[in-house]
Design a protein around this nucleic acid. Structure first.
Lengths: 229, 229
DNA sequence: ACCTGAACACCGTTCAAGT
DNA sequence: ACCTGAACACCGTTCAAGT
């Protein structure tokens, strides 16, 4: 039935590029857990087994997807020009640029963490950060520790431990807090005090602010250690 | 064939407790990716479907496993007695105790991160950390930011981005570094300098040291912010 | 109340067959 | 060289049947 344009307009031939692009779009829109070989093939108008002509297996596809996203990051970082003297702002800009891109690919953090080997593009990104530290006068050792301390934050993400996406209304929030006050007194006190000052729902964490807060905390500490040496 | 003790010694009856314990042992030993309902049932000498009498589904089992591990952490933390005045050492001891337990359950970090809702035991643990901050004179706001800045580190883990478990010999290391020096000059320079000073393999990162380094960096920063207020 | 066997609706992947 | 259909070896889970 979907065979209008067949011989005359041969549907763009499959390629690794096209497979990966489709996989990323699909994961962006409906989550990586719904990314199946059969489903991916369907969006490409092809049978599942055809994918194996352009990727070794599903793992290879996931690797390619990560690689594409990190390439995006490398491209964005390449366009940032901050005088080499201002390492702090240069570092900040790069990491926040990475974060901005990862926010558009919510599946990426999980997939990145689940992979054991680092892709060449990832190595390239980290190499650039290391270069920035070294130029800024950080010792080799301190640079090494700095990279570990940043961890996944260097790539612009931290896996949150809880999900505050299920926003509760102010009434529900108040009721829930009251109910939990006995068991978790400190937590409920903190939440109610903060939500009282800000808006009145439970969706009370500004992820961007918290990310930058922790990032600055770490960069401050590293700078201090560098200057103390 | 494995039916020696049947009627007289009725194999301890199944229970949620027993299912979870078996699941944890199995995941500890062979990884969570090999934890299947059928496999878990086999180790319990039962059919897969019997498990559904004691757990709603596999997700419920994973939730129970996390809960058991965090309970272990809560128990360990409860035994730490540090004078309330020394918040730094108290915080450090708790978090490192959590880490020690998670090291025995390598699957736990991944499962914890993949869950969206926080279990009561987890809330209890975080409640205690929040209490520690508050008693130490941290404002509500700063305490909130502190918990975010610690993130999963509060529970004793950070998901590493690469796997240095595949240790290379010194010759292989040297060869690999030489080969990669062109593409990743800063990275290879750092690695070769550090491995030269320490042992000569590529398994060159002391995870415990790096964990404590980053933890202290964050705690230092937080203390400074508290005192600046 | 608890356990079981067969079955269902999915996976990723192999293989021989098509063009 | 690329695509396909049928099949295989797995999943988690449902359901009717056993005791």
């Amino acid at each position: 039935m979907a065979k209008q344009a067949d011989a005359t307009a041969p549907r763009a031939p499959l390629s690794r590029e096209r497979v990966l692009r489709a996989a990323i779009t699909l994961a962006d829109e409906s989550g990586v857990e719904t990314l199946t070989m059969r489903g991916l093939a369907r969006t490409l108008g092809v049978e599942a087994m055809s994918l194996y002509n352009h990727a070794a297996n599903k793992d290879d596809i996931l690797a390619g997807m990560v690689d594409a996203v990190v390439s995006e990051i490398n491209d964005a970082v390449a366009e940032i020009d901050v005088p080499a003297t201002e390492w702090r702002t240069a570092m900040r800009r790069r990491i926040l640029a990475a974060r901005a891109i990862l926010l558009r690919h919510p599946w990426a953090p999980g997939v990145i963490e689940s992979r054991t080997t680092m892709s060449p593009t990832m190595l390239r990104y980290f190499d650039s950060l290391i270069g920035l530290f070294r130029e800024a006068g950080f010792s080799t050792d301190l640079t090494h520790h700095a990279m570990h301390a940043l961890g996944s934050r260097a790539l612009g993400f931290t896996q949150e431990l809880y999900d505050d996406s299920q926003e509760l209304g102010p009434d529900e929030t108040a009721a829930l807090l009251q109910q939990l006050a006995g068991e978790y007194p400190n937590l409920t006190a903190m939440v109610s005090e903060i939500t009282h000052d800000a808006d009145t729902t439970l969706g009370w964490c500004d992820d961007q602010f918290e990310f930058e807060f922790a990032l600055d905390l770490i960069l401050d500490g590293l700078e201090r250690l560098r200057d103390a040496a």
